[in-house]
């Protein structure tokens, strides 16, 4: 057991430190002999036992004695821990590749490959842009009427629903990736504005009215709202220039946003979005599978394409 565990550990260390390569080779020889049922006469285990005991002896005679007397047991523990570590490392790598987080889909525990948890960060409703602390497992599109939100390619087989906020750092970070996803793949794409900060609350009725007035120009406006700075889009005058650039009738938009219809539509959409159990943005649904926080492109594409991805 000691040989196997040592071989694994030493092989990994030897990748980075040439001084351990000879030991790794010895460990390999020991393992090879074991698995081919040859007599294990390399003395590797005994050598390592003596070396480690010798080192320990300088620090504590007691510890060295304990180590020496219980070497077999400690080897087993070492072996089990090594196998356990390999399993968890493998699982972490798998999860990171598949979901952008070592802990699995929408799980925001520590991940060495994403130590700051960037792939799971969300902007919480009413709060600042921080790590999300909601129940990731409960986000759903069940019972949510997505047809009332701006959509393109209606009727396409695959669907992507982005619930995001123009002033949320993480939605802004995820947006180019999502844009690439919907450009490179024919999907029924729906966007729902879910402001998590007060400064972009006013864009709710504007978005509703702009889509109603010109659905084609709406998507250009949507892109521009993500592309321009948070400070600029927080100003109504700036947004008006964008509306004008995209050929919107400002007066008609103004008239629309003050109408009871627009107010009620805003409320209706908010109520609808709450049904998703959203606790922060961005929240993306790909074929109804919820993803919280900005994920790498491969994660989105893999979920969208399923087996075809491979």
């Amino acid at each position: 057991m000691f040989c196997i565990a040592s071989f694994i550990i030493l092989s990994i260390i030897a990748i980075f430190n040439a001084a351990y390569r000879d030991l790794a080779r010895e460990a390999y020889d020991c393992v090879f002999r074991r698995i081919t049922f040859k007599p294990c006469n390399t003395g590797f285990k005994e050598k390592m036992k003596a070396k480690l005991s010798g080192q320990l002896l300088n620090r504590s005679v007691r510890a060295a004695r304990f180590f020496n007397h219980h070497f077999e047991l400690l080897s087993w523990i070492f072996f089990i821990l090594t196998i356990g570590s390999i399993f968890w490392t493998g699982k972490g790598l798998f999860n990171f590749y598949m979901y952008g987080s070592c802990n699995g889909l929408n799980k925001s525990g520590f991940c060495a490959l994403d130590p700051k948890g960037e792939n799971n960060k969300v902007s919480q409703a009413g709060g600042s842009c921080t790590s999300g602390t909601g129940d990731e497992s409960k986000v759903t599109l069940n019972g949510v009427n997505t047809s009332i939100f701006p959509s393109i390619n209606i009727g396409a087989k695959d669907s992507v629903v982005l619930i995001g906020c123009y002033s949320c750092d993480y939605t802004r970070k995820a947006y180019p990736t999502i844009k690439k996803l919907i450009t490179e793949n024919k999907v029924n794409y729906t966007f729902a504005h879910y402001p998590v900060k007060e400064e972009t609350l006013y864009l709710l009725p504007i978005g509703y009215c702009a889509y109603k007035q010109n659905p084609t120009a709406y998507w250009q406006l949507n892109d521009q709202l993500f592309e321009n700075s948070k400070e600029d889009i927080a100003k109504r005058e700036f947004v008006d220039t964008l509306l004008q650039k995209n050929g919107y009738d400002i007066e008609a938009i103004n008239s629309c946003i003050s109408s009871p219809e627009a107010q009620s539509a805003v409320v209706e959409r908010r109520i609808e979005l709450e049904k998703t159990n959203i606790y922060g943005t961005p929240l993306l649904f790909i074929n109804n599978k919820g993803l919280v926080g900005p994920k790498p492109y491969r994660v989105y594409e893999r979920i969208l394409k399923g087996f075809k991805f491979w």
Binding site: E46, K47, A50, K51, S53, G54, Q55, L57, N58
Partner: peptide, 8 residues
């Protein structure tokens, strides 16, 4: 022998 080397 190995422990004599390693420890001292």
């Amino acid at each position: 022998a190995l422990m004599l080397d390693e420890s001292a």
